[in-house]
């Protein structure tokens, strides 16, 4: 009885959800004077939303550990550098391996620092972000590295950031991440720790070992995100004064929105959907003439607070 009710509830939700998205799309199309449901706009949205999706997936694993890593932006900048340098040397293999290597290494270092220093991760992450930003500046100004990193990734190796390959990568990523999150021991263990670490530890799950393994998973995702970012944009701007943190804001909004839907949709599936929604909204805003970098940021901030409030609803615990 419960089983079939359950299934019916899911179907109804799916219908409503798809319907709502369709209505929203038509509405967007109408308010933009017919400029939303066009090939060019949809292409832009599809291309835009891929690399933040990978970061948001990374956040799913990070938040399950209770970590808020503010240095991810800094890691992505360095990862993109590596992607560019090795990509220009070795082609596609270099694009992927370069980003991957840096992402894995740095995020793994971060996890070790979080786990062993016991400094709250957000503040440790800010310190690390400063260091990573500084390294990027060193690479940019040093005479020996400048010619390597301050160039664009060669046009012929940018395919991963363009259609249709970016969507193929997204699909492959979705299957792989869904698999890891839902069907592997490490995925189950980290969700158990995130949900109730007391029960998890009583049930024989090793906290530190699980955390470090998750560091490798998150590192892989952030590394891939770097490679995709470089492939999409072709080059990377160096960020200083902690502005690299701003690279986390869109993924954060995506994650928070997906978090709200998690009772209905598996969060790993919800992330790319929410990513498309968030980027669609900001694309519409751009089409409507809302200037980017200014009022769009203001709306993003508002989104974060609203998603935060809705996601927090019903929580009675102590919140700092």
């Amino acid at each position: 009885m419960t089983e079939s009710l359950e299934r019916r509830g899911k179907l109804i939700f799916a219908a409503v959800f798809v319907g709502a998205i369709a209505v929203l799309a038509v509405l967007f199309h109408a308010v933009t004077g017919g400029r939303f449901l066009t090939a060019s706009t949809l292409t832009i949205i599809a291309k835009n939303s891929v690399y933040p999706t990978f970061i948001a997936w990374g956040l799913c694993f990070l938040f399950a550990c209770g970590y808020t890593d503010m240095s991810i932006g800094g890691v992505v900048v360095l990862g993109s550098f590596a992607s560019c340098v090795f990509g220009n040397w070795w082609g596609y293999a270099g694009v992927i391996l370069g980003g991957l290597a840096v992402g894995l290494l740095l995020i793994f270092i971060n996890f070790n620092i979080f786990a062993f220093s016991r400094i709250p991760s957000w503040i440790a992450g800010i310190s690390l972000a400063m260091v990573y930003e500084a390294i990027a500046v060193f690479l940019k100004v040093s005479d020996s590295t400048k010619p390597l990193v301050m160039v664009s990734l060669r046009e012929e190796y940018r395919g991963l950031g363009q259609l249709p390959w970016s969507l193929v990568i997204l699909a492959v990523g979705l299957v792989a991440v869904y698999f890891v999150y839902n069907l592997t021991t490490i995925g189950i263990n980290i969700r158990a720790i995130g949900g109730n670490s007391a029960v998890a530890q009583k049930m024989g799950i090793n906290l530190t070992r699980t955390l470090l393994k998750v560091g490798l998973i998150a590192g892989t995702l952030i590394g891939l995100a770097s490679a995709l970012q470089e492939s999409y944009a072709g080059m990377t701007t160096v960020k200083t004064g902690l502005t690299s943190m701003s690279m986390l804001f869109y993924p954060l909004a995506i994650y928070l929105l997906a978090q709200i839907l998690r009772d209905q949709i598996n969060i790993i599936i919800a992330v790319p959907i929410c990513s498309a929604i968030v980027y669609a909204v900001f694309n519409v805003l751009a089409l409507l003439g809302v200037p980017s970098g200014t009022l769009q940021e203001a709306i993003l901030g508002l989104f974060l607070i609203v998603f935060g409030v809705v996601g927090q609803h019903g929580n009675r615990g102590v919140v700092k």
Binding site: T68, W122, S246, F249, P291, G293, T294, L295, Q296, E297, A298, I299, L300, G301, L302, L304, I305, G308, V309, Q312, N315, V319, K320
Partner: peptide, 26 residues
Amino acid sequence: IVSKLKVSSFMTTIAMLIGIRGVVNY
């Protein structure tokens, strides 16, 4: 927002940092 709506202060003020900076730039 922090006390009544119980959003963490870190999240709220980071959102403000993004949002208001946008307004200032505008």
